[in-house]
Nucleic acid binder design. Structure first.
Lengths: 139, 139
DNA sequence: GTCGACGTATCAGTTCATGTTACATGATCG
DNA sequence: CGATCATGTAACATGAACTGATACGTCGAC
């Protein structure tokens, strides 16, 4: 099963955007993401809608950050992507009426919920300037 | 991305096996798992190799548990399946030499490592008899 | 020796994310 | 105002991976 790398890809691009003054085009940023402009725009749509970045058409257009890196948490980026599924494992309810199956599902769901909480907490603590510099943010 | 439900499926089957005296055939157990015998055998191969279950050919053959449920941890089952990938997210190293990308990867890898530890700890604490009864094992 | 069961290789089918193309919209510049 | 440049997005193509399916080999009980 292939992993969803959009979060990693988007962070990479955002950090590069922060290093440049003017806007950058999908053409350029897609290359930095290793894909093509249409995929890049599709991926960034949520970040535009939640206001992390803005995009302009026409001459001199392109993408830019709307606020400094220390005002953007990893959690905000994750949520802007639509909170993609974190886990590769899960339940399949073939027999929803079966008590055993319900117990199994509850155990796995509990553990995954705990792990989710951990992800959210950590993501909320990390701002993008923490990532831009050397890897130092509290442990 | 579709979730890997093998762990959930296998637990379900193991608990049902524990409720029966004699061995059960792939035919029967596959039906309980909602699949066909070949897929069932493929899925259970690791559990046979690690000794959680045994299988016998010929008349009166089939699958049986080799030890009671309270001697089987969820972790043992997970490992017998080959420690399937837990996470749906991940890094893609398109630019391994890029410092920014290395920082991004490190942040995500750290968080995933922490979550892995949590999964392993919880899986190690839970034995299958905890799941068989009502859902009570410590919180 | 026949039958019943597992073991497993191999191929087919499906699904889903990603890649691709195409075209519409809108802004800027001359 | 028209040309150009950029985004927005729909629609379709591609490809990889997992599951399902089939076939056949092995082995044990009767």
């Amino acid at each position: 099963m292939n992993r969803d790398t959009r979060l990693s890809d988007v962070l990479h691009v955002l950090l590069h955007m922060a290093m440049v003054d003017g806007p950058l085009t999908s053409e350029v940023l897609a290359r930095s993401m290793g894909t093509n402009p249409a995929v890049f725009r599709r991926t960034m749509a949520g970040l535009r809608e939640t206001g992390i970045v803005s995009s302009d058409k026409g001459h001199g257009g392109g993408w830019r950050l709307t606020r400094p890196l220390n005002k953007i948490t990893l959690l905000a980026v994750y949520e802007a992507l639509g909170r993609p599924n974190l886990f590769a494992i899960g339940n399949r309810s073939r027999h929803p009426e079966c008590l055993v199956e319900r117990n199994v599902n509850a155990v796995l769901a509990d553990t995954m919920a705990e792990a989710s909480t951990l992800f959210y907490r950590r993501f909320g603590e990390i701002t993008l300037d923490n990532i831009a510099g050397s890897h130092e943010f509290g442990h």
